[in-house]
């Protein structure tokens, strides 16, 4: 019986059909998905902070509106993704606890600080850009609710990326100080953006099984190369350079060659040593703890309300 279920699961996955919440699935598949989707949801929520850092100081009302709407979208993405984990039997409160206790991770990129307003544009262009490269293949991932959430998220992320790029284009038409600000920001974010694709394939532990289950569709290195190939012409159009002396077109490969990110820095930040790791988690924890009495009140009111309705009936 179990063998039949497993066979049917394997066939569904291999036929590129979707697994839906009520379908049988192996425990490992369920656990891997919960871990991956939760990590993605946490990234959206933690990702609100570095950009949210500039809402109060946005230098024009139009930019303020765009930024506020963008950070609001990220909260929305977090919500869809937590909902997707709930279809697998996870619980939002439990996942939030795991996040603030450091038992589940989020994208390490958000442990870097946003130091100027140009960072808002560069995050849109490069960080959202890298995220899209990672996420577009997930629109075809084998778990239905995740794939559907990703389609919606990718559309909105593309819009954010375009807004970020448009901000940089505008700044590059501005004063020398603004142009310098953009280049400085690109210098700080380029390598961390490349790290977003994860360690080199040779060192990536989760890739193989996830590829077989069609949870993941491309390797880290493939996606990183794709991102570099797409970003270089964008940088040229913008009038900025990437801080990589090894970056050059390779005629033979038909791709760009590029240098290797500092993986020691990557692991240091992943393990908690980034400029903002503690701050990001402390911020999230404070919001969650400060809000506990509000959530309790809402639950108590709902219960009283139901009881009153029943009493009246």
């Amino acid at each position: 019986m179990a063998d039949d279920l497993e066979l049917r699961f394997e066939r569904t996955v291999q036929a590129e059909s979707r697994i839906e919440p009520r379908d049988w699935m192996p425990d490992g598949y369920r656990k891997t998905l919960i871990r991956q989707i939760a990590q993605h949801a946490h990234s959206e929520i933690i990702g609100m902070q570095p950009e949210g850092n500039w809402i109060s100081r946005a230098p024009s009302l139009r930019r303020k509106a765009i930024l506020l709407a963008k950070v609001q979208d990220e909260a929305g993405h977090g919500l869809y993704l937590y909902s997707a984990t709930e279809t697998l039997g996870a619980d939002r409160e439990d996942l939030t606890t795991k996040l603030i206790e450091g038992r589940q991770k989020y994208s390490s990129i958000f442990n870097y600080p946003t130091l100027t307003f140009a960072d808002v544009g560069v995050i849109g262009w490069l960080v959202d850009g890298a995220a899209i490269c990672n996420q577009v293949p997930l629109c075809r991932t084998s778990y239905g609710p995740y794939a559907r959430a990703m389609i919606r998220i990718c559309k909105e992320e593309s819009f954010h990326q375009r807004q970020g790029y448009e901000l940089l284009m505008t700044m590059m038409r501005g004063t020398q100080q603004q142009k310098d600000m953009v280049q400085d920001s690109v210098n700080r974010w380029w390598w961390p953006a490349l790290m977003m694709f994860g360690p080199p394939d040779a060192e990536s532990t989760n890739t193989e099984q996830s590829m077989a289950w069609r949870i993941k569709r491309d390797t880290n290195d493939e996606l990183r190369q794709k991102f570099v190939n797409m970003s270089v012409p964008q940088a040229e159009a913008l009038g900025v350079t990437f801080p990589d002396p090894e970056l050059k077109w390779n005629e033979e490969r038909g791709q760009y060659d590029f240098g290797s990110p500092d993986w020691d820095e990557f692991w240091q930040v992943v393990k908690g040593g980034g400029v903002c790791n503690e701050q990001r988690i402390a911020h999230r924890r404070k919001a969650h703890e400060d809000g506990a009495w509000v959530r309790e009140a809402a639950a108590a009111h709902a219960a009283k309300h139901d009881a009153r309705k029943e009493g009246a009936a």
């Binding site: 609100m48 949210g52 809402i55 909260a75 919500l79 911020h283 809000g291 509000v294």
Partner: peptide
């Protein structure tokens, strides 16, 4: 807007 990322729940952030 000061509440952004500080609200008691995600729905309220939004």
């Amino acid at each position: 807007a000061e509440w952004c990322s500080r609200a008691p729940e995600l729905e309220e952030d939004i």
